[in-house]
Design a protein around this nucleic acid. Structure first.
Length: 808
RNA sequence: GCCGGUGUGGUGGAAUAGGUAGACACAGGAGAUUUAAAAUCUCCCGGUAGCAAUACUGUACCGGUUCGAGUCCGGUCACCGGCACCA
């Protein structure tokens, strides 16, 4: 019979749909649980991409193997469906985004079935479902009540031509992605979440989780913890000017001070500043620079000296000038810095440009040429009073202590991480369940009024003033205050896409619960996620946000673990032919539907795993797909020609056990490409040796997670199903016998002075003397030994023997 | 600039702990089968020299440690990703 993959795949997908063999059972204490998680897809109109198939297939393999090992596996799927592309599509086609979402989800679901993933389909979630976003809103309200949500004026991207607010992704090289118009920064009052309050824990708790290192490093860098000192400088205006520094050891080297253009002291000192016009003009100019321009123009330092106000260095009481310059950011530290041109490159550039004195306080470099910035033991303090003679390493704590004792400063930790801007001026997101009352301020909706549904609107276009489309719905906006009953207005901004995706894995644990985001029992049973695989691009946003969200839920007693994910791995991208990113414009996009139609889902799954190291980027090759199909053809043929016996052929035992070992370990280590290679080797050997049904049984068990349809079919045709039921339900992952992985005789390499001379075949675990004896009989060894004497032999068991010789 | 990652045949990629470099595939070549093609099967396939046996050489580059280095150490180069005036 021919390997008719289309019929076979449809047959088994239908059976799985009917019999639900992949159902996870909450509360089953008879088995260990395993929660495998993939990043739920955004249901775009383009449908599933091969980029989805790689991580999805890998986790499916892991979960299918875990099930066969006897675990109670939760492998769920859902859709992260709020967001901009759907909204833009809705605007363009005048279709309701809910309708667009519904159609796209239906298409995704079909494609996911087509690839044979073993999801528990009864636990599907969708972030746009009111039953789901009720709990997103509920979580937000808890944060609001705990004071973690607050309003602040933040810059937004504003397209001057479309007159709308843009997301960062919509701004490309400083212009609007859609119309090419100029994008400027505009201040807007926005909801913020105080993720920075969790900054320390988000760093420290990384020590307790099993995340691949690059994820941990990237998160640590992003949070950017820095231990330094705040130092107070007096000013001739009477105010105390506080700066943050990591190099308090260089205090004696301060020759000027800098305020950021937005610093409140400028306004305050208006009357004292003799050149106010000049300062005001500089501020105006800085305000009009976009982020893009600021980073573009960061080579040349600019600034203006404040005439009429000076600062006083608390270390030596010297009076020094104050400047305003946009190389100092208001959003980090105190918005003011001390200028140490001798030992900070930016300060050096600034001082050089404005002809300010450069004082060397750490000897070790040449401060007339460049700043000397090393802070190890190579520099010695000079010109620094009581610090003279110390190394920088010693001087930092000494100065920190002195500053604290003198009452002019204190140690301080700062973070690069900023609070989370939680407002979007868009329609297709969760409404923020708050009401603004002129008397009571911002009042949360009572929980029994959740979910606060998205109202129907006529147009999804943002208003001319940049308000969300919801602002036009006056019937919806105008409401009564839940507290005082007076007239009040609803918040019209919606939540960002990151909101719903911050906790979706919790909903999988108990997806239909109407009284809580999930029951205590389900949360206790399934937490934490055992293994979460996803893209590196989500490391600093989604992954960090969801850890924060989870820690908050932990603090209010909702979830039982302080970290959501026990383990995190990451896959590499699938590139198109030529090694370039797949994109419509390049025309190198591979559609999984085409591959499945041509070769079948099993081939698709196998190839996407075989293509290369899972963690590295890989290039799609249409030719190489054929190799995976050929392999399955050979498996099919092997099954047709297999001997009737259910016993294992002794000659096949070593390869069977070697393969069990390799495949089992490789799946656990995500080395899926070599797990497949090992199975190919096994099939090649079984073909050469001849094999029985009993031999093949092992192959089917090992191959099932990778190619679930063909193996299920062969399991049935070879008669195993009659005895023990469906293959995917076998709690019988093969266990290898180490003693059987070694063949009776082994090939060993023979070297003379480390150079390969040949190989010998000897009984496994032979003694050194026997191996050397056999080695001496190799022709080339004899030749190499002429006129030599053996001074030493090195034996690596079952692998190699090296004869060390020297002239006689 | 800072922080990660990667460099191996024509191609994708293998190589627990330093131990036969190139597993497993793709492409290519030769042959078998076939009226023919496809499919399938067998063999070859890093480079140089040689009919061959064989010898030398080879994991980005330079040096080191070791009986032995793709792997460890020091230095250099190239490419990819992230952050970027974070004081």
């Amino acid at each position: 019979m021919k390997y008719d993959f289309t019929a076979i795949e449809q047959k088994w997908q239908q059976k799985w749909l009917e019999t639900k063999p992949f159902t996870a059972v909450t509360g089953d204490e008879s088995r260990e649980k395993f929660f495998g998680l993939i990043e739920f897809p955004y249901p775009s109109a383009q449908g599933l991409h091969v980029g989805h198939a790689r991580p999805f297939t890998a986790m499916d393999i892991i979960c299918r193997k875990k099930r066969m090992q006897g675990y109670n596996v939760l492998f769920p799927i859902g859709y992260d469906a709020f967001g901009l592309p759907t909204e833009n599509y809705a605007i363009k086609t005048h279709t309701h985004p809910a309708k667009v979402t519904h159609d796209n989800v239906a298409n995704f679901r079909k494609q996911l079935h087509m690839l044979g993933y073993s999801f528990d389909w009864d636990r599907e979630v969708n972030t746009t479902d009111p039953g789901y976003y009720k709990w997103t809103q509920w979580s937000f309200l808890q944060m609001f009540k705990k004071g973690l949500a607050y309003k602040a004026s933040m810059p937004v991207n504003w397209c001057t031509r479309c007159k709308i607010v843009l997301a960062n992704e919509e701004v490309v090289e400083g212009v609007c992605e859609r119309c090419g118009g100029e994008v400027i920064r505009k201040e807007k009052s926005q909801w913020m979440l105080a993720i920075t309050k969790y900054a320390d824990r988000l760093i420290d708790d990384l020590d307790d989780v099993d995340f691949i290192n690059r994820v941990k490093i990237q998160q640590r860098n992003w949070i950017g913890r820095s231990e330094g000192t705040e130092v107070n400088f007096g000013t001739t205006a009477g105010d105390t000017m506080t700066v943050y520094t990591t190099r308090c050891d260089t205090l004696f080297g301060v020759t000027y001070m800098v305020l950021s253009p937005e610093h409140p002291f400028l306004e305050k000192w208006k009357e004292r500043i003799a050149n106010w016009d000049e300062v005001a003009a500089y501020r105006e100019e800085a305000a009009h620079k976009s982020d893009f321009e600021r980073s573009e123009l960061n080579k040349e330092k600019t600034g203006v000296r404040l005439m009429g106000v000076n600062a006083v260095n608390p270390a030596n009481q010297k009076e020094i000038p104050i400047y305003v310059s946009d190389y100092v950011l208001l959003s980090y530290g105190t918005g003011a810095v001390m200028g140490v041109p001798g030992h900070d490159q930016r300060d050096w550039e600034f001082a050089t440009k404005f002809s300010l004195p450069i004082i060397e306080v750490v000897r070790g470099g040449d401060v007339s040429k460049e700043a000397f910035t090393l802070k190890d033991d190579t520099g010695i303090m000079v010109n620094s009073g009581f610090l003279n003679g110390l190394t920088v390493k010693e001087a930092i704590p000494t100065m920190k202590k002195w500053v604290t004792e003198q009452g002019i400063g204190h140690p301080k930790t700062n973070f690069k991480l900023r609070d989370w801007v939680f407002s979007r001026q868009r329609y297709w997101g969760e409404p923020i369940p708050l009401v603004n009352c002129p008397k009571c301020g911002w009042v949360p909706l009572p929980e029994e009024q959740l979910p606060l549904l998205l109202p129907e609107v006529d147009s999804y276009e943002v208003t001319d003033t940049g308000e969300s489309p919801l602002a036009k719905m006056t019937d919806w906006v105008n409401t009564t205050c839940p507290k005082c009953g007076g007239a009040a207005q609803r918040e019209t901004d919606t939540m960002p896409q990151w909101a719903g995706s911050s906790w979706y894995f919790l909903r999988y644990m108990d997806p239909h619960n109407e009284n809580a985001l999930a029951s205590k029992e389900a949360l206790e049973y399934w937490s934490p996620v055992d293994w979460y695989n996803g893209g590196m691009e989500h490391t600093t946003l989604h992954l960090l946000y969801s850890r924060f969200w989870h820690k908050f839920l932990y603090d209010i007693g909702v979830v039982p673990t302080k970290e959501p994910y026990a383990k995190r791995t990451s896959h590499g991208m699938i590139l198109g032919e030529g090694g370039e990113k797949m994109s419509k414009s390049r025309g190198n996009v591979v559609n999984p539907n085409d591959i499945v139609a041509q070769y079948g889902a099993d081939t698709m799954r196998l190839y996407i795993m075989f293509v290369g190291d899972f963690e590295q980027a890989a290039t799609w090759s249409p030719d190489a797909v054929k190799g995976s199909k050929r392999f399955l053809d050979r498996v099919w043929n092997l099954a047709e020609s297999a001997g009737e016996s259910d016993a294992v052929t002794p000659a096949n035992e070593p390869i069977i056990h070697k393969t069990i070992k390799k495949v089992t370990e490789d799946i656990d280590n995500l080395k899926l490409n070599t797990a497949i290679a090992a199975q190919m080797t096994m099939v090649n050997e079984l073909s050469a040796n001849g094999c029985t049904r009993g031999d093949l049984r092992y192959l089917l068990l090992l191959l099932n997670p990778f190619a679930p349809h063909i193996t299920e079919e062969l399991w049935e045709t070879l008669g195993f199903a009659k005895k023990s039921g469906k293959l995917c339900c076998q709690a019988e992952w093969p266990v290898f016998d180490q003693s059987k992985t070694v063949a009776a005789t082994v090939d060993m390499a023979v070297q003379v002075n480390g150079k390969l001379k040949g190989s010998i075949s000897v009984p496994a675990d032979s003694l050194e003397a026997d191996v050397v004896k056999a080695a001496l009989e190799v022709d080339k060894v004899g030749k190499a030994l002429e006129g030599m004497q053996i001074v030493k032999t090195i034996l690596v068991k079952n692998r190699l023997v090296n004869l060390i010789v020297k002239p006689q």
